[in-house]
Design a protein around this nucleic acid. Structure first.
Length: 424
RNA sequence: GGAGGGGUGGCAGAGUGGUCGAAUGCACCGGUCUUGAAAACCGGCGUGGGUUUGCGCCCACCGCGGGUUCGAAUCCCGCCCCCUCCGCCA
């Protein structure tokens, strides 16, 4: 969501930035609509002022026992007028709102140009690809051979894109989640949160999934939506609030299930755990003062990277080009972990700087002590990490020739003495 | 799910048809007094929007949305949320 005064001030720059994201020019149309609306609004408010005035006069006249018929007649006319103008104003306002709420966030100026993920820029690499003296397998072959990863039975109950983990693998995924949460709360200053997995529409509007991406989400008969990421409840936690600026930054983390309809990804990643309708993820959300937000993206991304480092996983950080940016993001770093079984890097975290795009949508503001003006804090979010995909990465990188999986050292405290996951 | 009660400014809490954006208290901010602080006293103190060079003027908002009325925080209807009791339940 954008500040109209910003578009008013720099319509050309606005359209130019939108054009980088492949958007048609909209500034002119928006400004014309806004101008019309303000004209009508002024008209409406003048009529309302007159109405209030007459109302007072009627009160006075009646109090004095005088006749007020003329005034009441004028009021009747005015009332019809107000109703009509009100409808016009509402229609224009709704049109404007629709237009604005469908626009994606603007990329920062130095985000690289590009169409799609092929144009993303590699920022740095960490670690090295592990060497194998055998052909490394993909995680689903390993998991099924171990008898601890069952897609067939999951499909029987739930359809495609679900999995049942058991034994050591179920525990390994749980260990990953606990490990990540503990790391973020004890070393990165995040506050652990336990949040709802079901939310109502305004929350999804706030973070930007609605109105445009309803098709990617699951909805219940009672009208709730299943969260596609904990970014939604964590960021909306302070929706409609005015935060004391001294209380910023606020850093929240949560381990939640995430649900995605994966509409439009038929045929993509159909095997294995890479793309599921349900997965768990540790999410990081930061709410910060506008001046701190660029630095915070580095901080947040580093926090996510630390998980991969401690697990001894080789990965790279890439910066998304404008064409690959999500709807609400101004800059995004993806962390891509090396998967030897797949012989390629796969996204395991996505860390985004959203500026005031989301906080405007959810009307979250902040204010310095003693000051009158409020402003919009900036929001950031990132996976720290997706535990399902991290499980995949651990399996493929720590596999042995016999198909067993060595447990990474960092997870030992969470595995109850289990050092190797093997078929029993 | 059933019955009842309730949602007012940062908090507490008045207000049940006519200058009510809303008494009062607390909290907070500024000032006087004081060596300093406290107390006391004085003043200020919601949000969003329109308009104006500016002072300012105006509009909307008392959970949300409709309605009645010349006029609604106040009356009526629907929805949401909270509390109490009952039922059910991890």
């Amino acid at each position: 969501m954008f500040d109209l005064s910003r578009i008013r001030k720099e319509p050309v720059a606005f359209d130019a930035a939108m054009a980088r994201r492949g958007q048609e020019p909209v500034a002119e149309g928006i400004l014309a609509l806004d101008k019309d609306r303000r004209l009508i609004l002024t008209e409406l408010q003048e009529a309302q002022a007159r109405r209030n005035e007459i109302s007072r006069e009627i009160g006075k006249a009646k109090g004095a026992g005088e006749n007020a018929d003329d005034l009441i007649a004028e009021m009747a006319r005015l009332k019809a007028d107000i109703q009509k103008t009100e409808e016009q104003e509402r229609a224009l306002g709704a049109e404007l709102q629709d237009l604005l709420s469908g626009l994606p966030n603007l990329p920062l100026a130095d985000v690289p140009d590009g169409e799609n993920e092929d144009d993303n820029r590699i920022v740095h690499l960490q670690g090295e690809k592990p060497a194998f003296d055998f052909d490394p397998k993909e995680h689903f072959d390993l998991g099924e051979a171990l008898g601890l990863m069952d897609f067939e039975r999951a499909a029987k109950m739930s359809g495609s894109r679900f999995v049942v983990l058991s034994g050591g693998l179920a525990r390994l995924e749980r260990a990953l989640g606990q490990f990540m949460l503990d790391l973020h709360i004890s070393e990165h200053g995040y506050t652990e949160m336990a949040v709802p997995s079901l939310v109502k529409s305004p929350a999804l509007y706030g973070t930007g999934q609605l109105p445009k991406f309803a098709g990617d989400l699951f909805k219940t008969e009672a009208g709730h939506w299943l969260i596609p990421t904990a970014e939604v409840p964590l960021t909306n936690f302070h929706a409609d609030e005015i935060l004391a600026e001294e209380s910023l930054p606020r850093r929240y983390t949560a381990l939640t299930p995430c649900y995605r309809a994966e509409a439009g990804s038929a045929g993509k990643d159909t095997r294995g755990m890479i793309r599921q309708h349900q997965f768990t993820k540790v999410e990081l959300v930061s709410i910060v003062a506008p001046e701190q937000s660029i630095d915070e993206l580095e901080r947040l991304t580093s926090a996510a990277e630390e998980v991969l480092k401690r697990l001894g996983l080789h990965y790279r950080r890439v910066e998304l080009c404008v064409g690959d940016l999500g709807f609400s993001a101004s800059r995004t770093y993806d962390l891509e972990v090396w998967l030897p079984g797949q012989d390629r890097y796969r996204e395991i975290s996505s860390c985004s700087y959203c500026g005031d795009f989301q906080t405007r949508r959810m009307n979250m503001r902040c204010r310095k002590k003693g000051e009158k003006i409020t402003r919009f804090p900036h929001s950031l979010n990132g996976s720290g990490l997706a535990t399902g995909r991290t499980l995949v990465a651990v399996m493929e990188n720590y596999q042995q020739a016999d198909g067993s999986i060595t447990v990474p050292e960092a997870l030992e405290p969470y595995m109850g003495g289990l050092a190797v996951i093997e078929a029993r």
